[in-house]
Amino acid sequence: MEIVLAIVVGTLYGCGLYLMMRRNLVQLIIGLALISHGANLLIFTAGGLRQGGAPILAEGDAAFAQIPADPLPQALILTAIVISFAVTAFALVLFLRTYQTVGTDDVDQLKETDT
């Protein structure tokens, strides 16, 4: 299972980087989103893929009946997803406004600050 996920992570990173290097602003933002998905999946994979029960003690028990799954990577990913959601939403507004001001979605035309 790790190998499959590793390939998926690699593909996400590869597609994301490819899209980021395109000249289109919309493709740029999709690329950024894919890379952040890749990072989230990487945390999930690196955190260890274990099958196990929920990490919640039943009332009155002193120890887990079976080895519980590690909840922390999922908490981390949840936080990261929330953050990337907010940042991507902001980036969309920014890109839209740039498109309206500059009148192009071609990254190559954004040369105002290149001196």
Binding site: A86, A89, F90, L92, V93, L96, R97, Q100
Partner: peptide, 13 residues
């Protein structure tokens, strides 16, 4: 609040 700030901003564009 944050969702609506962004959605309204996008909608009013």
């Amino acid at each position: 609040g944050v969702v609506l700030t962004l959605v309204f901003a996008l909608g009013e564009e």
